[in-house]
Design a binder for these strands. Structure first.
Length: 190
DNA sequence: CGAACGATTAGCT
DNA sequence: GCTAATCGTTCGA
């Protein structure tokens, strides 16, 4: 039985790039539903692609709050996307959860997604949001308390990195991280 | 107050 | 590969 190491706010206090890499292989659960994080992206304050780039607004306020909390935003008016707040309070950094390997509550996730193909259940930030029933109400919630649970990776694994997806600024920096060889990535790494 | 624009996805060519 | 769907947020007038 592997020891379950629940990540606490201090575990999210580092650079978003460092946290994004560390989170690969970790387990994310929302009300017991979720799986292994296989893809993340880092965003930071001095980062034109980040929601926090131009300073605090009503939408991104929790990005400037303490680390270890969820920042949820609506994407394209359609999808809910989940981020983990990093750094110290007031900084404005976060990690976008882009894909997980479904492991727990798979049937419930299939119902929510109206889909049977396992590979496409949580392979993308909007898909993760739908499968885990992420909504605005979870924005600002602590990640070490219900309904959230984030458990550190226990198995050794390789992490790959590359440019972030779907952005129009800072497209050159390799701040997207993935579990090497996973078939649950939103897109392959080059 | 109007308008542009997404940290996306599904479906079709 | 290309595009419609869809609407909250942000910014300029």
């Amino acid at each position: 039985m592997p020891r379950l190491n629940l990540l606490k706010p201090k575990d999210f206090a580092g650079d978003s790039h460092e946290v994004a890499r560390t989170l690969i292989g970790a387990t994310l659960l929302v009300d017991g539903v979720g799986g292994r994080i296989v893809e993340t992206e880092a965003y930071d304050r001095e980062d034109p692609a980040s929601h926090s780039f131009s300073g605090p607004t009503p939408r991104n306020a929790v990005m400037f709050g303490p680390p270890g909390h969820a920042y949820v935003y609506r994407s394209y008016g359609i999808h809910w996307c989940l981020n983990f707040v990093c750094r110290e309070e007031g900084h404005g950094a976060g990690v976008l959860i882009r894909a997980i390997e479904p492991l727990h509550g798979i049937e419930l996730m299939r119902e929510r997604r109206g889909l049977h193909e396992l590979r496409l259940l949580c392979s993308g930030p909007g898909r993760v949001g739908e499968a885990l029933a992420i909504t605005r109400e979870l924005s600002g919630a602590r990640l070490d308390r219900p309904p959230f649970k984030v458990l550190a990776a226990t198995e050794p694994h390789d992490v790959v990195r590359g440019p972030r997806i779907g952005i129009s600024k800072a497209m050159d920096v390799p701040w997207r991280f993935g579990l090497a060889g996973s078939r649950f990535l939103s897109r392959a790494f080059r």
